[in-house]
Amino acid sequence: MPMTTTPAEPVTPAGPTVPGEPAAVAEPRRRRRAAAGWVLLPAVAVLLVFFFYPLATIVWSSFTEPTVGLANYTALFTDGVSVTVLLRTLRTALIVALVALVVAYPYAYAMTRVSRRTRAVLTVLVLLPFWTSVMARNFAWYLLEQRDGLIDRFFSLFGIDGVVLLGSVTGVTVAMVQVMLPFMVLPLYSNLSSIDLRLMDAATSLGASRPKAFARVYLPLSLPGVVSGFSLVFIVTLGFFVTPALLGTPQQSLVSQVIETRVGDLLDFPGAGAMGSVLLAVTLVVLFAVSRIAKPTAALNQAVDRA
């Protein structure tokens, strides 16, 4: 640790000192603050070299290769497929986020209302899929959605034959909702648990009906959690590859599949970079739009940490 190697700099304080503090105490604190900058260095270096540099390279190449200009971007609009794929991806991500929200909200709400023991059980039920291998879960959905899989057989019981979700956007959507559920429940619960339930009592005691109290008091208070969960699931779904690749089809591909094909099969980094940049731009716009109300990633982390 560089802390000990940093020379003491008594003249230039690295931060405000507490007034009235004895010099013997203030001095090491100052030194520690000077050292604080150095301990950031490894992380900054690793992220710069192995994350931001590669990212910048691929974005750069989308503007400069094979020729300088916007050719790769105009191609997105003129090749007849890319726009369709992009719109399909946005729509899928929206649907996944919306359905996940509707499914998760009552669950997260219930988590705030039950006994401690029940809450522990409900929490574990969310954390189990969260920590379980993504590949194992997607393989499970592959089994369920295939021809003669359990879903197909289930619908056959009711005389509806041929419900093979494998190889369709619907199949991808259904699986994605389940795969993303923890990402919705955890930030939601994190927010809902901070709402004072007595506010609901206050509303009802003042004459509001339960549904009205819910709609006018509880729901608005839960908005940050809703926005956190929704934007998190939306963003993660946008760039998610495994589920579309395993359960979807090249005929109705999502952006991640197209990017993978371009790079994996054609080594077309500039073309993939253009699509990736669009995806990145959408992500940043979403994050910026919600930044006033919610920090999706922070919300998730806090929730997982606390659980």
């Binding site: 192995f50 963003i235 760039g239 998610f240 590859f241 991640s256 990145l280 992500t283 999706p296």
Partner: peptide, 11 residues
């Protein structure tokens, strides 16, 4: 927060 597939092809 950067889309997973974009990080992957960049790296």
């Amino acid at each position: 927060i950067v889309p997973g597939i974009v990080v992957a092809v960049a790296i």
